[in-house]
Design a protein around this nucleic acid. Structure first.
Lengths: 166, 166
DNA sequence: TCGCTGTTGCGGCTCATTCGCATTAATGTG
DNA sequence: CACATTAATGCGAATGAGCCGCAACAGCGA
């Protein structure tokens, strides 16, 4: 099923791209460099900003199209971290996510955490769970310890965002 | 913890509403009737349509505001079923959701299915999982049985909606 | 019956993402 | 190397879900 084993480097991917009839463009080169160098969990907009730092007028929609294409090639995957925009990461770095609804902190967790759920869903319903595409939400340790409503100071990826009061 | 035990009927909720300084309006009455009578998993837009069948010019944003208010009262909860709009249901009818990414079928599942995950997340990370707010996605039995890409004819709650084929 | 104040209709706005279209540029070929 | 192909791009506009502000309206207690 895996048409593409695992991309090892930017040039690797570019080669794959070319072998599929695609073209190696500077925007793609830079986008891939950003993906390989930076951390995980970056949104399309963040990636666009990084690309634009090198190539000022790469349009946001070009970034979206390239991310799409790379996902089609199996190089990338995206996940939805609760509310908010999708985040992209290399297919080789997949993992599950726990996202705190209160403070927005994001926890990367090994897929093993979902093993029992995956098993149970398959057994009971024949349903094959994909624990990576959507985050599992809830409340992080810090927020869970507080009375409902007060977010702990998040050390997460995004800024903490308390919702409206009681 | 539960300021509101469980709403039993439309009038119940209206009374609760009034006791909190809210007002009983016809749009709220009709919206509540729709919620109590119809099935689960309805989107704001669907609910608006049902309300508008009785009261032609209830505005969509009024429905959103009322849903919001009812959620604040603890009468409703909403969940995000994969991609697509949020769905609302009575707080007394909560359950988890498994949503097929391929054919869109929605499976209601008891929260017990997530028990192991909930336990594991708490033990390993102190994270309190909320298995209701966001659906767990994957592929339903029918779709999982097929070669990737071909959606089975879904018998889910909503209409089957194969996304634009490749 | 009044008046206070919660609600509504309406239109416009945001945010994330996608689309159409004319233009540009990466490639394989001659 | 010049050229034709045709994939990619820039740009702006559109989409879909949901939220916001504001002025007009309408419950409800007095």
């Amino acid at each position: 099923m895996a048409a593409t084993p695992a991309p090892r480097s930017v040039d690797d991917v570019l080669e794959l791209l070319r072998s599929r009839g695609g073209r190696v463009t500077s925007s793609r080169r830079v986008l891939l460099a950003a993906l390989f160098e930076g951390g995980p969990h970056r949104t399309a907009e963040e990636l666009a900003a990084e690309v634009q730092a090198q190539l000022a007028d790469v349009h946001l929609s070009t970034v979206y199209r390239n991310l799409d294409e790379l996902e089609r090639l199996g190089v990338l995957v995206h996940s939805h971290l609760g509310h908010g925009p999708a985040t992209y990461h290399l297919a080789s770095e997949t993992h599950g996510h726990l996202v705190c609804e209160q403070c927005g902190a994001t926890l990367e967790v090994p897929e093993e955490l979902f093993a029992a759920l995956v098993r149970a869903a398959r057994t009971a319903y024949g349903f094959v769970v994909d624990a990576r595409h959507f985050a599992v939400v809830g409340r992080c340790a810090a927020c869970a310890a507080l009375p409902a409503g007060a977010p702990a100071s998040a050390a997460g990826t995004s800024e903490p965002e308390p919702s409206g009061g009681p």
